[in-house]
Design a protein around this nucleic acid. Sequence first.
DNA 1: ATGAAAGCGCTAACAA
DNA 2: TTGTTAGCGCTTTCAT
Lengths: 333, 333
Amino acid sequence: MKQVAALAGVGIKTVSRVVNHEANVAPATASRVWDAVRALDYHVDLQAGSLRRAGGRTRTLGLLVSSVDNPFAGAIHRAVEDAAVERGVSVFTSSLDDDPLREAYAVSAFLQRRVDGLILTTASPRPQYLGAVLQRGLPVVYVDRKPVDETLDAVTSDNRAAAELATAHLISHGHRRIALLADRLDIGTARERQRGFLDALGHAGISTTLAPMVTELHDAASAQVALARLLASEAPPTAVFSAQNLITVGALHALRVAGLQHAVALVGFDDIPLADLVEPGVTVIAQDPQQIGRVAVERVFARLEGDTSPARHTITPTKLIPRGSGEIAPAAE
Amino acid sequence: MKQVAALAGVGIKTVSRVVNHEANVAPATASRVWDAVRALDYHVDLQAGSLRRAGGRTRTLGLLVSSVDNPFAGAIHRAVEDAAVERGVSVFTSSLDDDPLREAYAVSAFLQRRVDGLILTTASPRPQYLGAVLQRGLPVVYVDRKPVDETLDAVTSDNRAAAELATAHLISHGHRRIALLADRLDIGTARERQRGFLDALGHAGISTTLAPMVTELHDAASAQVALARLLASEAPPTAVFSAQNLITVGALHALRVAGLQHAVALVGFDDIPLADLVEPGVTVIAQDPQQIGRVAVERVFARLEGDTSPARHTITPTKLIPRGSGEIAPAAE
DNA sequence: ATGAAAGCGCTAACAA
DNA sequence: TTGTTAGCGCTTTCAT
């Protein structure tokens, strides 16, 4: 900046004023400064600036998602980025991998870089770092899952109700022996979805002894193995509720390998790409990750602009998309 | 840091030494400092530090990809992140949207935040910002595409050869009237893929008048419309080479709607999720985005560690995965 | 092994 | 409208 000032023949503060679009600069002076900026390929050092700037804003956000290569997270990320660029804010993104240690590490990395706000997916029911974050007055919004016991801004789906709807959908098509394939139960959403599943069985008066539940599934491969085993058992399920996108993919593979994709019904939680192109089409409960991201980032910016209203937990809508796999009737016994 | 120093009863420099794991601190002193750090939930300000630090490193990287919600980009991103966390480096990610303006803006945002290195996908054949970047000695590695005329580190696939392979595969199954569906030709990879397509036709002695080529396609919807139109024409293609993942998805929809998915052959560039579950399976040329990201980030870190060897253009392997759609023979005429 | 002082690039506060 | 000075939180250099 000093060099620019020298080249433009002005004081350093004038350069600062110009590059920050402050008022009270003569147009002629401004254009001389811009010329110097271009001549030197100068880019302000936002980091140095934020050191002194009132409020210490860095024009930077931290985003923590399950994994940056998961399509659900990708959609959230895109929504966050779009709102951020509009405001000249850049986004640090990290992957959680459902590991509380990795979560703590990522948040700490964000804190060390003095982000202005956090959008977090959490693996910990009670994250240790929250105290430090809140005490600093840093806006935090949880997406997809939220810590228990805490009144915080959060944007999630109603996992329990949606899972109940999915299961009821299968029941309404005549199924009674319905399998649940779910993620690790230490993840809140997995628990919620299991509860919804059980709610639906309860309302229909179906004994849970009929319902094989396999949990602690974490990827497509383990889900495929689990379902293959169920299908080969003596009382195989006539329908499956797969409670997460990767699990649905594994379930699809297992059904395909067993040649049962037209015989065993399937409803998945979370939409998956090409779900409409497989045969039969995959019936899913679709969340709206785009909207989750959008609402979350707006919440962060609102907080940054001084909104001090009480914490808000926004529930974004889900919808059941029937495509065929969820409408298969059970084989007559 | 001053507060920590006060609480621990040491000088500020000692705190700096401890949190940066420097030598020459008495174990007893160090543990007193750590206690204070924990008591105050203190996190170093890396930004302030890098202001004075030799080399001015910020432990930060800038990554520019097509779009953060594209699975191809997600895989690259993940590989970059994994290598970065290992080194305590955080990653800024932005989406390019194949817009040179957005590209320039993103790079400028990275520069203003003083990233240590850049991993870029480019939409500009000759990016303006390169001068400023190179002059600063910032390591840049291009992924997926690279600017022309520049000797720079880059990691790409051999798009031309892979496209030729895909097309030759269709020809070897008896096709002569093969359609090309491609992206905007101002994108280098789209041009390369078209060249490879033409190479294969040339080698087989097939006149290009037989080959309907639709370019400037940019998403699934436009690709679907384009293929639907071709299929309805008086001399419809018996095979299709779709030169990008979203275009492949659009092509699949068009074939499905026309009921021709078992009649018209299809090979896609880039693997797509669930490609093996649709009927018939989708034959694709698969790149290895994970490896592209891994090689690129290693290159950046090597440069940061002082590697001054000449720029290297790494070609990562692609492979043709036959799954059914590419092995359909043309209908007898 | 520890600390004091200077200064990184910038912006706030104030002066001219 | 413009410039000067101090100081943000840290690391460097140098002294102890």
